[in-house]
Nucleic acid binder design. Sequence first.
DNA 1: GTAATATGCAACTAATTGGTTGCATGTCAA
DNA 2: TTGACATGCAACCAATTAGTTGCATATTAC
Lengths: 105, 105
Amino acid sequence: MDAVFKALADPTRRRLLDRLFAGNGQTLGALCAEARMSRQAVAKHLALLEAANLVATQRRGREKLHFLNPVPINEIAERWIGKYERHRVRALADLKKNLEGKSDG
Amino acid sequence: MDAVFKALADPTRRRLLDRLFAGNGQTLGALCAEARMSRQAVAKHLALLEAANLVATQRRGREKLHFLNPVPINEIAERWIGKYERHRVRALADLKKNLEGKSDG
DNA sequence: GTAATATGCAACTAATTGGTTGCATGTCAA
DNA sequence: TTGACATGCAACCAATTAGTTGCATATTAC
């Protein structure tokens, strides 16, 4: 879980996920093409995404194909974000009440 | 948006959000009580959460009260995670197809 | 006023991170 | 086999981050 959050923390990695979302199963080379950094830098980011299980890979000859795995993101949405979201209205009301005037109750 | 992801990347900060979720409007001192680090370290984390708009604060005398703001988390869920989640089944099928055997089609 | 309490600010350190370069390995094509 | 292509590995560097300590400021209680 922590690895997923950390992986999502970097804009470059989120962009890579976006690229895979746009076209799944891309090679490292293809993903490097539009990135303004070295191939090795991109490879490191992809390795991190793979470690976080956000990306699955498969070798095809000398190429490495990358596939988006939406499951961990879904888990975040369901398990962690949902926790707050469920109580969103109540928490907002609580916040508002406390910020606007505590004496009133 | 980036600030929110970065803020959520640290387990200590997620824990602080959990603490605020359990009891909203806590002071810095109260939040420090159960953390195994210095008050200043906690204060820094809270400042980051506040900068990311995940926490709102209010002064009461010499105390500083901290309130959970679930809105940015909700935005992530709706705007960014939803993008992947919506296509979850299709992406999974795609992934499976490509991993299990490409020759079959 | 004075002491205790609650927080703020700043300097410093250690660890992590994001990036680079150079070279090695493995695969495809002629 | 040889050369070109795609990726992997490792060392290194700069910037950021997470934590510390020390001191300053502001509020409450006596």
